[in-house]
Design a protein around this nucleic acid. Structure first.
Ligand SMILES: NC(=O)c1ccc[n+]([C@@H]2O[C@H](COP(=O)([O-])OP(=O)(O)OC[C@H]3O[C@@H](n4cnc5c(N)ncnc54)[C@H](O)[C@@H]3O)[C@@H](O)[C@H]2O)c1
Ligand SMILES: NC(=O)c1ccc[n+]([C@@H]2O[C@H](COP(=O)([O-])OP(=O)(O)OC[C@H]3O[C@@H](n4cnc5c(N)ncnc54)[C@H](O)[C@@H]3O)[C@@H](O)[C@H]2O)c1
Lengths: 203, 203
DNA sequence: AAGTGTTTGTGAATTATTTCACAATGGCAG
DNA sequence: CTGCCATTGTGAAATAATTCACAAACACTT
């Protein structure tokens, strides 16, 4: 069982390796890669050891090979379809962001109670009403959703998502969502991040 | 020394307590509050024990008192000024968000290389050029910044921020920032969050 | 082909965090 | 005022994560 935190770091290593490849760097030592990722070399090596041994002693890691192996381990090799619910200020920013595709994700559609008012914007994804959501999720076999609706309705929307087969939710609403234990929620709570910063820069 | 993770959870408790207060609930047991926060009761009690004892055995915690105490501990009692750098899609969404004030933060100004093109939007904060930033930070004694600039320029902007006295950065650019160790960076990397979800819903 | 210098991989040690288990406490009913 | 009951606070135990320390492996030089 690979620790949760290791999985997070694998994602970071992946991005550092991608940059190295862009710069035509063929091999990298655990020391150099760890530095780029902001961790200690031993931690990097331990993280990799959870699922294989890829390095050459005395030399380091082959950038392409390691990229490939981490990618496989994370299952990022194939493009994952994602939907977004709640096309407000934040939802629109996310929809117009072109950075997800090259990381292996694609927001294929958005849903909102009021889809028509949003439609005039310069975004490429279709925006549907909430009524169309269950059918869409089932037909396209979507497993992940980004939730950017007001907190007051978030639990309600989540219940629908879960009933319809969504297994992973990236939640921006500042509330704790109740979900069955086979559904995973990652919360992004910006107020808490700020509060956290504020605490540590004072104390 | 209070664990880092405890501090995160204190912020969550705070929000749960705020909701209880809105619903005119005066006391709460560790069991009920823990459930609302999505943690185990013993963990909640241990978290509180790090900085005091506030409960009444047989009864639970006084909602108002606990709210007050956690707030003090986190230093959220006073409003913290924050600046935002990079008024693009994401930056605009953050600027227009009215939810930070009631959590103790206020984005008092924004900065961008191209401030004039953004000025027509319906946001209340002033947008200045990058040239004005150092002076502003020093004069207003701002300690925290939200960074939503393109990744290619992020390190550069951070260097300026750090030189000017910023001690806490909430970073949305998908790169690892290098900062002196007395500066704290909290990263919000949405691609990594998605990748993480994707891993755990499959494996 | 041997020697040298680097860097990996990994058990063991350390440190951090969570959970357990239960004695101590105070509210409340009678 | 006494005893019961619910609930806290907390050492101790368990679990998880990080760091250390070093032998093993390989590249590279001569
Ligand atoms: N905007 C930010 O910068 C920011 C920052 C932190 C947190 N958040 C959180 O993110 C969420 C979205 O924020 P926002 O600023 O975009 O809000 P918003 O009000 O601009 O957008 C919310 C959208 O959800 C839609 N909606 C409402 N009820 C719905 C329902 N039942 N089903 C589907 N859609 C529904 C609305 O039509 C609207 O388009 C909120 O929970 C907010 O607290 C936002
Ligand atoms: N938009 C999203 O949903 C989203 C999602 C995940 C990550 N991000 C990340 O957040 C950051 C911002 O994303 P965005 O979509 O808002 O990008 P954007 O291109 O819309 O906005 C970037 C803004 O930064 C300004 N800028 C450029 N160089 C600058 C400099 N040197 N100093 C100050 N300002 C400068 C630009 O003028 C522009 O207004 C990026 O790093 C992006 O990768 C965005």
């Amino acid at each position: 069982m690979i620790p949760r935190k290791t999985i997070y770091r694998l994602s970071i290593y992946l991005r550092c390796l991608a940059r190295l490849r862009e710069n035509s760097i063929g091999t990298v030592s655990s020391e150099a890669l760890a530095k780029a990722a902001g961790v200690k070399p031993t931690q990097l090596r331990k993280d990799l050891a959870y699922f294989g041994t890829f390095g050459t002693r005395g030399l380091g890691y082959d950038v392409n090979e390691l990229l490939q192996k981490i990618s496989e381990e994370l299952g990022t090799s194939s493009l994952q379809p994602v939907i977004l619910v709640g096309v407000g200020n934040l939802g629109l920013a996310l929809l117009s962001y072109r950075g997800f595709e090259k990381e292996g994700f694609e927001i294929i559609a958005a849903f909102d109670t009021d889809p028509d008012r949003k439609r005039d914007k310069k975004i490429s994804q279709p925006i549907f009403g909430m009524h169309d959501m269950p059918k869409f999720i089932r037909e396209k076999n979507v497993k992940m959703a980004i939730l950017s609706v007001p907190p007051a309705v978030a639990q309600n929307v989540v219940n629908t998502l879960v009933d319809t087969g969504i297994a992973g939710i990236l939640n921006f609403a500042p509330i704790v969502l109740a979900v069955p234990e086979d559904v995973m929620v990652n919360n992004v709570n910006l107020a808490i991040e700020l509060e956290n910063l504020s605490y540590f820069i004072q104390g």
